[in-house]
Design a protein around this nucleic acid. Structure first.
Lengths: 144, 144
DNA sequence: TTTTGATGTAACTATTGACATTACAACAAC
DNA sequence: GTTGTTGTAATGTCAATAGTTACATCAAAA
């Protein structure tokens, strides 16, 4: 299956924050208009990012900001913050294989180890990209 | 999100075929009993694997077998066979970002390139594991 | 040639997860 | 207090996955 669009929306939001915070107050309405989504969806996303220590959100007066420099926010940080997968497992196992069959009995142990290694490699690749990198690419694109 | 369990079921099925084909006729009922799923689900899965040239299925008399050696079937082959994702894209983009916002206008181009690279690394990791590897692990487990 | 046992596939249902939407209480600054 | 915003619950919609039933199709054996 696919990784839900929450990751790309979260990156979109963080890039907007970094790019526009000198000129605009960053409200959920403002972000929702750029993403083209419902403000409530953005607020929920911001809550997840806030719980992970990635952003700060001001309640009464309104406005969101990053909680640390863009160069210290990796795609893996964001992925872990917004993809609320049970146990952080990328691959989903079929439940209840037949324990009377030797394959059914051991498939989880055997395949699980291999899939965990593959997931580690994916996470390693995600860790190598920061919001700062995306921001630089974005500014280059806008400059053209 | 998660990757659907079809990948793990497919691996389970292929390991069963390799392990039991000397002693049993491999029917969808036999496989369904080990996986603990409905035979129709297994048949649909076998159709996908067959379309990818991974297995052969005999119609009248019944029975499935691998179409090539286990050492030449990688997790990536299986993943591509059973995960019918549009364009094979692991990461799912939010549709319709606001083109009037510079971030909305360029997010797909900018982020897409980075995500494609990450996906390539995932696929590289999946390509490194074959059914033969899983089978060896399985036999070691069973031997204990 | 008929029987047998399996596959291939359509149709329908149930379940789940993501997301949209509405509504409103809680809150901070003016 | 007024105002504009966030935090969050409740509900609806949609797509994907998978379970289930039913049956036509098929190949081989009797």
């Amino acid at each position: 299956m696919q990784i839900a669009s929450r990751l790309t929306v979260a990156v979109h939001v963080l890039v907007c924050i970094e790019l526009f915070k000198p000129d605009h107050k960053i409200t959920s309405d403002f972000l929702a208009s750029s993403v083209n989504a419902n403000p409530v969806v953005i607020r929920r996303l911001l809550q997840q990012l806030k719980a992970a220590g990635i952003v700060r959100v001001l309640r009464g007066t309104g406005g969101a900001d990053t909680a640390r420099p863009a160069s210290e926010i990796t795609l893996l940080d964001i992925y872990r913050a917004v993809e609320c997968v049970e146990g952080g497992e990328l691959f989903h196992f079929h439940e209840n294989p037949n324990p009377l069959c030797p394959v059914g009995k051991h498939i989880h142990t055997v395949l699980g180890g291999r899939l965990a290694q593959i997931q580690r490699e994916l996470e390693h690749a995600m860790e190598a990209v920061t919001i700062q990198d995306i921001l630089a690419d974005m500014q280059a694109q806008i400059g053209q």
